[in-house]
Amino acid sequence: MTQDNFLVRPMTLDELKLALSWAEAEGWNPGIDDANNFYIADPKGFLIGELNGEPISSISVVKYHSNFNFIGLYIVKPEWRKQGFGLKTWQEALKLINNQPAALDGVIQQVDNYRKFGFNPSHTHYRYQGVIQGQISQEVIDLKRIDFEQFCRYDNQYFPALRPQFLQTWINQPNGCGYGIIQGENLVGYGVIRQAIEGFKIGPLFADYQSIAEQLLLALATYANGKNIYLDVPNINQQALALAERYQMKPIFECVRMYTHKAPSMDWTKVFGVTTLELG
């Protein structure tokens, strides 16, 4: 798409690193390995906008499945805002979706704008921040020791699509770790923590019970070694909110999960932390 020397096209991996540097400048605090982690989810799903050859905007449309697409990384460099380039970038993203169901996490100020394009609010995500003294219980095991197919099936209970390629990279990233808990022969919870620009981010944190989520939270906290931890919690899971607050974590940011079609059928009471606000 070209107009007034403005072009929106697929990103390279290096350009995704550039877009994440913009996200850092916006205070989004991405993970230090997020470019590689994100790109594997859908290499064709990241778009960059160029004006006269200069990158000035970005957006992602990760197509997990025809029934679930996720929009994120929607950024226009500050000096180019309110000139129509953001809308043109957005419109190219919608073309990729082609009227299929889509979701996003929008900042409060943009909710009404997203409504105009058919996105409807579902619930809120709160970003919690805090320092937690970690400990690893006997039940907790390294995710890499868990059968990968079993792990993917469990993840799919609390994420609306199978995402094996992404998960393979996510649990093996060099500056992070993951833990799970198996009871009997069943996986009953797992979580991943990764180093961010500042501190560490946990996501996802899925668990059948609050007690399982708590064991995983404490185990993951050992990796942060006394640094800040960030966790994006759905406000429709009261036990998740209570768990974050039990460890004196404080909400510092909120955004709204929005869907174009009927929200996916999943049990949010088992979602104690979403994977990322950029990829769902």
Score class of each variant (00 low, 15 high):
residue 211 S to G: 01
residue 247 Y to S: 09
residue 146 I to R: 04
residue 271 V to W: 11
residue 264 P to N: 08
residue 268 W to T: 01
residue 231 L to G: 09
residue 118 G to Y: 05
residue 64 Y to A: 03
residue 111 V to N: 14
residue 117 F to K: 04
residue 42 D to M: 09
residue 204 P to I: 13
residue 195 Q to P: 11
residue 48 I to M: 15
residue 36 N to G: 04
residue 32 I to C: 05
residue 123 H to A: 02
residue 135 Q to V: 12
residue 39 Y to A: 03
residue 181 I to H: 01
residue 242 A to V: 02
residue 247 Y to P: 08
residue 102 A to M: 07
residue 231 L to A: 05
residue 18 L to N: 08
residue 218 L to A: 06
residue 259 Y to I: 04
residue 15 E to R: 05
residue 226 G to A: 10
residue 115 R to L: 07
residue 206 F to Q: 12
residue 35 A to D: 11
residue 62 V to I: 15
residue 11 M to S: 03
residue 80 W to C: 09
residue 232 D to G: 08
residue 180 G to Y: 01
residue 73 L to S: 08
residue 147 D to H: 10
residue 236 I to N: 12
residue 206 F to L: 14
residue 167 L to C: 10
residue 44 K to H: 13
residue 116 K to E: 11
residue 90 W to M: 08
residue 224 A to M: 12
residue 238 Q to E: 11
residue 121 P to M: 08
residue 154 Y to F: 15
residue 241 L to K: 11
residue 257 R to I: 11
residue 85 F to K: 10
residue 66 S to Y: 06
residue 174 P to V: 07
residue 39 Y to I: 07
residue 199 G to P: 10
residue 155 D to R: 08
residue 62 V to G: 07
residue 118 G to Q: 01
residue 109 Q to G: 03
residue 74 Y to G: 05
residue 157 Q to A: 09
residue 6 F to P: 08
residue 133 Q to E: 09
residue 204 P to F: 12
residue 259 Y to W: 04
residue 134 G to L: 07
residue 142 D to L: 12
residue 52 N to I: 02
residue 268 W to P: 00
residue 277 L to H: 08
residue 215 Q to V: 00
residue 29 N to Q: 14
residue 18 L to V: 12
residue 99 N to D: 15
residue 118 G to A: 01
residue 30 P to N: 07
residue 220 L to R: 14
residue 48 I to F: 12
residue 242 A to I: 04
residue 216 L to D: 07
residue 25 A to G: 11
residue 33 D to C: 14
residue 269 T to N: 15
residue 262 K to S: 13
residue 100 Q to W: 02
residue 95 K to W: 08
residue 214 E to N: 04
residue 6 F to T: 09
residue 42 D to L: 06
residue 205 L to M: 01
residue 249 M to F: 03
residue 13 L to S: 05
residue 251 P to Q: 09
residue 256 V to K: 13
residue 71 I to T: 10
residue 93 A to G: 15
residue 134 G to C: 01
residue 142 D to M: 03
residue 255 C to R: 11
residue 238 Q to C: 02
residue 239 Q to I: 04
residue 228 N to H: 15
residue 81 R to I: 10
residue 50 E to Y: 07
residue 245 E to A: 05
residue 186 N to H: 11
residue 52 N to D: 13
residue 215 Q to K: 13
residue 96 L to S: 05
residue 253 F to C: 09
residue 272 F to T: 03
residue 165 Q to W: 06
residue 235 N to D: 15
residue 86 G to C: 13
residue 244 A to M: 14
residue 42 D to V: 10
residue 243 L to Q: 07
residue 180 G to W: 03
residue 7 L to R: 12
residue 206 F to E: 09
residue 74 Y to D: 10
